[in-house]
């Protein structure tokens, strides 16, 4: 029973990963892609982590899985922010230099 639930969660998480990759490939510009990516991979990893921790043997493993999920969520949020800020600044300077010319 527990295995079944874990399997379902992992399968659902994998679907989110696939969705994120499709978004990465199909969305038109960098901001849309960023949106698809951070949402999808954050949620996908959360579901997989939940499924895996249901199958874990010791509490230590569960703790480490939760820690991993926490760090990935944090890094992906901040990474998304940094990339977006970078892309926006690049766009601005490009526009600025065009107007200057």
């Amino acid at each position: 029973m527990l295995d079944l639930v874990a399997g379902l969660l992992i399968a659902l998480g994998t679907v989110f990963f696939v969705a994120g990759t499709v978004g990465l490939l199909r969305f038109p510009d960098i901001y849309c892609r960023l949106h698809a990516l951070t949402k999808a991979d954050g949620l996908g990893l959360a579901l997989i982590a939940l499924g895996a921790s249901l199958m874990a043997r010791t509490p230590g493993e569960v703790f480490r899985i939760v820690l991993i999920w926490f760090f990935v969520a944090l890094a992906s949020a901040v990474g998304g922010h940094l990339i977006a800020a970078y892309a926006r600044r690049m766009d601005r300077t490009r526009e600025g230099s065009l107007r200057h010319d």
Partner: peptide
């Protein structure tokens, strides 16, 4: 930035693969 972003997603996927691999081969 597009290329870098994709690399970031691969990092997350690799983490997911490792979590599942640790279950399959039972090596914490």
């Amino acid at each position: 930035a597009d290329r870098m972003m994709a690399a970031q997603l691969f990092g997350t996927s690799a983490v997911a693969i490792l979590i599942i691999l640790s279950r399959v081969t039972d090596s914490p």
